[in-house]
Amino acid sequence: MTKSYKILFLSSTIMGTLIAISSYSWMSMWIGLEINLLSIIPLLSEQNNLYPSESALKYFITQALASAILLFSVILSLNISEYPQFPNTFSMMILNSALFTKMGAAPFHAWFPEVMEGLNWNNSIIMLTWQKIAPMALLMYNPQMTTLLTSVIIMSTIVSGILGINQISMRKIMAYSSINHIGWMISSTLNCQSIWLIYFTTYSIITLNIILILKSLNVFYLKQLFNSLNSNKPLKFFFILNFLSLGGLPPFLGFLPKWMTINNLVQNGFFTLSAFLIIFTLMTLFFYLRITFSTLMINTSETLIFQSNKNSFTVMFANMISLSGLVACTLLFSNL
């Protein structure tokens, strides 16, 4: 049963994000971010388990530090005439760094997998999707610093690919996957912000599908996943297809926003950046494929006794939407 205080704090978390992205001044944006932060801490912590409380404390310290840096950069930019030794680009760089820390982009990413490791799947959904909206929106409001953004994009794709390979925890795999997608989302904001909206929506749908499957199986590690999926063939099928979609393979919905992002980058002359994105995303695709191959062929077993599994309607419906999404989008865009 959902506790009433969770509904209260969830609604104020949503309200904090909406205040931040709809504000006209940096001060009210900062207030919105603080409301969001202070509201999500009670959602993350649990009385009967130390790990979520530890994650909540790590999250609070990191976000409070980023908020302080953001407020400092705003004050510095307002009083820039009194400090001629600090150019305006310096304060903008500090501001962008604070936003990168809040969203968990490399090289400010180290807190994100550690926080994710202690959370349950409900809080993981919030952390992977909703908590990215406000920093991304505020980043789009800033004057674009192409060199800084390009560096963060390349580092996010490299770091997520290298560090994600050795993981056996599904929460950490999803965290490094999110860091990789943050790089793609930032690159989609360079020229066309509507592509970012399509990318974020698609990423949220696929992530939600994967986490619904993992939550229904009560799985947190790869070994548990292999054992659980052997007895449930429909969920195994949907899980494999969703992971391939998350990697951006062509027949699936996850290919659409990456295709649009690369197309937009090439049209605007970002040839080197698009090449880096494609090459280093293959590293994340490698550990996606390793999980799917292991699930499908290596760690699979057949039981002689037939087991009828009643899968959740929500899981099945969400997966059907995700898997039929590319067909729908192709038909839609071809008729526009």
Rank of each mutant, 00 (worst) to 15 (best):
M1S: 12
K3D: 08
S4T: 09
S4Y: 11
K6M: 14
I7P: 00
I7N: 07
I7L: 15
L10R: 09
L10A: 14
T13M: 14
I19M: 05
I21Q: 10
S23P: 01
I31S: 05
L33H: 03
I35Q: 02
L38E: 00
S39H: 02
S39F: 03
I40R: 03
I40G: 03
N49M: 13
P52K: 08
S53G: 11
S55P: 09
A56Q: 02
L57P: 00
A64V: 11
A66P: 05
A66E: 04
S67F: 00
I69T: 08
L70C: 03
I75G: 00
L78R: 05
N79C: 09
S81N: 15
Y83K: 15
Q85D: 13
N88C: 11
N88V: 12
F90C: 07
S91G: 07
I94N: 00
I94K: 01
N96R: 09
S97G: 12
L99M: 14
M103W: 00
G104F: 10
G104S: 10
A105V: 09
P107G: 08
H109C: 10
E114T: 13
V115L: 06
E117V: 01
L119G: 05
L119W: 01
N120D: 11
N123Q: 14
S124H: 01
S124L: 13
L128Y: 07
K132V: 03
P135G: 04
Y141N: 13
M145A: 09
T146Q: 13
L149F: 10
L149C: 10
L149N: 11
V152T: 10
I153Y: 15
I154T: 02
M155L: 15
V159H: 05
G161D: 03
I162N: 08
K172T: 13
Y176G: 07
Y176I: 11
Y176W: 06
I179V: 15
N180H: 07
H181S: 11
S187Y: 03
L190C: 00
L190I: 10
L190V: 01
L190A: 01
C192H: 14
Q193C: 07
Q193T: 12
Y199R: 13
S204H: 03
I205D: 04
I205N: 10
I205V: 13
T207V: 13
L208G: 12
I211F: 04
I211P: 00
L212P: 00
K215Y: 05
S216H: 09
L217C: 06
N218A: 14
N218H: 15
V219W: 01
F220E: 10
L225P: 01
F226W: 07
L229T: 14
S231A: 13
F237C: 02
F239E: 04
F243A: 04
L244T: 04
S245T: 02
S245L: 07
S245G: 09
L246R: 12
G247D: 02
G248R: 13
G248H: 01
F252S: 01
L253H: 03
W259C: 02
I262M: 11
N264M: 14
N264C: 14
F271W: 13
T272A: 15
S274Q: 06
A275N: 12
L282N: 08
F287L: 11
Y288F: 14
Y288Q: 05
L289F: 04
F293N: 14
M297Y: 15
M297E: 08
I298M: 06
T300L: 07
T300I: 10
I305N: 12
F306E: 14
S308I: 11
S312V: 06
V315P: 03
A318P: 00
A328C: 09
L331F: 14
L332C: 05
S334K: 15
N335F: 11
L336C: 10
